[in-house]
């Protein structure tokens, strides 16, 4: 199981569209993926959860991946979040 903390850099955060892309990407991995913001943790494969937690600009989230492809999963998800621009 590996984790990494990352800051949200785009203005509107993980709203519907980038959120959906994140979830789509997460679903391509075998690993179990969770996202933690503050003291709340939830599945990184549910867009609804992602939206309900309200991940916005400047938030730091902890992404945790656990499974056979955990390293690729974590790298790719972090890269995706870091590259968001809108």
């Amino acid at each position: 199981m590996i984790s990494r903390e990352i800051e949200i850099v785009n203005e509107t955060g993980l709203h519907t569209r980038p959120g959906n892309q994140f979830v789509k990407l997460a679903k391509t991995f075998e690993s179990e993926i969770t996202v933690r913001k503050g003291d709340r943790e939830f599945s990184g494969k549910s867009l609804l959860k992602l939206m309900k937690i309200g991940i916005s600009l400047g938030d730091r989230i902890l992404i945790t991946c656990s499974g056979e492809d955990e390293e690729t999963a974590l790298d790719e998800l972090c890269r995706f979040v870091a590259a968001l621009t809108e």
Partner: peptide
């Protein structure tokens, strides 16, 4: 793409 999110 928003509607892709709706489907999800």
């Amino acid at each position: 793409e928003v509607f892709e999110g709706h489907l999800e």
